[in-house]
């Protein structure tokens, strides 16, 4: 579904991603771990062109997207949901409007259809009574669940998660992870940058270890955590586990 070849990203002179190759199949749940500054968030943000790659190719469903013009990217992004570390809900809109804004303004749904969809999504993320609330009235965990619902409202083919639990109080991490797990069980293709090793072990179909802008190891979680080969990964795991 997503095919990355020779992806390189530089910010001015700093090289953040070095010649990365990766492949994400439909239905896969790819979890990316690594120390901070390793380029994992940048890699994720390149997949929907939040960051423009300096060189290399990204194919989405066979279509080369790195060379696309700004307005050609928008329809691609409609098919990729993204969830951010800091939720980025729209504080001036109710939860319902947060969820329905994009599908309605993009002409994909009528307001009525979108409202109905929002209701279903709110049920799904376990917050059916929050439709009329504003983001400021919610806890961090609730905000992130709404952010996931907002992304799902576009019926994306793949969901990108950029450290979705890193800004949460510890007691709220579980509710977000269990929603993500539920999403995974429903067959959603997911790419997740996270520090939650338990989630990686339990949910990932493949785990990637990134450091210094490169993918140093990738494997199924059992081998990845049970028998890590790369010395950097062994060192990293010894610190976080």
């Amino acid at each position: 579904m997503i095919d990355v070849k020779g992806l390189t990203k530089k910010f001015n002179r700093t090289v953040v991603l070095r010649n990365i190759d990766a492949h994400i199949e439909k239905g896969e749940k790819v979890v990316i771990i690594g120390p901070s500054g390793s380029g994992k968030s940048t890699f994720l943000r390149c997949l929907n062109l939040m960051e423009r790659p300096t060189s290399g190719s990204i194919r989405f469903d066979g279509q080369e997207i790195t060379g696309l013009r700004e307005r050609e990217i928008d329809p691609i992004r409609q098919r990729m949901g993204m969830v951010f570390q800091h939720f980025n809900l729209f504080p001036h809109l109710t939860i319902q409007r947060n969820i329905t804004l994009a599908p309605v303004k993009l002409g994909l749904m009528t307001q009525e259809a979108a409202d109905k969809k929002a209701k279903e999504l709110l049920e799904r993320v376990g917050l059916p009574d929050k439709a009329k609330a504003y983001p400021a009235q919610l806890s961090g965990g609730q905000k992130q669940r709404i952010a996931i619902a907002r992304a799902l409202a576009m019926n994306p083919e793949v969901m990108l998660f950029d450290e979705p639990t890193s800004a949460l109080d510890p007691e709220m991490v579980g509710e977000v992870l269990s929603l993500m797990k539920q999403l995974a069980d429903d067959g959603m293709t997911m790419v997740v940058v996270t520090h939650e090793m338990g989630f990686a072990k339990e949910v990932a179909s493949r785990v990637l270890f990134m450091a210094d802008g490169q993918i140093l190891e990738e494997n199924a979680p059992r081998q990845f955590f049970g028998n890590p080969k790369n010395p950097r990964l062994r060192e990293f795991l010894s610190k976080v586990l």
Partner: peptide
């Protein structure tokens, strides 16, 4: 800037993101 990114990530273009998300705030 996360507000702009959230809008763009949903597939709204720059003008729509400005109009519905950034300018009202």
């Amino acid at each position: 800037v996360g507000q702009l990114e959230a809008g763009r990530s949903l597939g709204l273009n720059y003008r729509q993101t400005m109009m519905y998300i950034i300018m009202p705030q």
